[in-house]
């Protein structure tokens, strides 16, 4: 399954995380959270290292990674866009907002644009239902988004002027 060889310090980083949790199999989910937080995603090669450290099978690690929607095996874009598809946002028009993002970026849900700038995902309820429909770009929340605003949101990030805001917000 693995195609690339991980850099030595990446392997070291993963091992450190595993050790932090006592290399215990029961801590697998916590380990995955922490590793994804450091590396951004969990490709097969990373899963192999984790399996070895926790003395469990790669199949089991893979089973857990693919079960939970929080874990991803595909790297996200520089500006990950998430559309809230909770019920409150749905009845206030989230679907139209989503299809406008798909149309503008020419990607499907779960994909990234060719230049790696944007990735598009859905999420379930940010809990800001008063602001429905809600779109998140990185950590920044855009509330009461109308389909006509979508083009401006993308433009804002494409031109880079908002990149600082997104990271610090």
């Amino acid at each position: 399954m693995p195609k690339i060889k991980l850099a030595e310090n990446t392997v070291q980083q993963i091992k450190e995380v595993c050790a932090e949790f006592g290399n215990k199999e029961g801590e697998l989910i916590n380990v995955l959270h922490k590793v994804q937080n450091k590396l951004g995603y969990l490709p097969a090669e990373v899963q192999e290292v984790i399996a070895r450290e926790l003395k469990t099978s790669v199949a089991k690690v893979y089973g857990v990674v693919t079960f939970y929607s929080f874990f991803t095996m595909i790297p996200k874009g520089e500006f990950p866009i998430s559309i809230c598809m909770g019920t409150a946002c749905y009845v206030r028009g989230a679907e139209q907002v989503l299809s406008e993002f798909k149309r503008q970026l020419k990607v499907e849900v779960g994909e990234s644009t060719d230049d790696g700038k944007f990735s598009l995902n859905c999420l379930r309820c940010v809990g800001a239902c008063g602001l429905a429909p809600v779109v998140m770009v990185g950590e920044k929340v855009f509330g009461r988004v109308a389909p006509t605003q979508v083009v401006n949101i993308i433009k804002e990030y494409r031109e880079g002027c908002a990149s600082e805001n997104a990271k610090s917000a």
């Binding site: 029961g26 801590e27 989910i29 939970y68």
Partner: peptide, 19 residues
């Protein structure tokens, strides 16, 4: 948790806590 609705069910939740 790691984003699975079914984990609100108590037996599923317990398995998830066990990794």
């Amino acid at each position: 948790g790691a984003g699975a609705f079914v984990c609100g069910e108590e037996t599923a939740l317990i398995h998830s806590m066990e990794g």
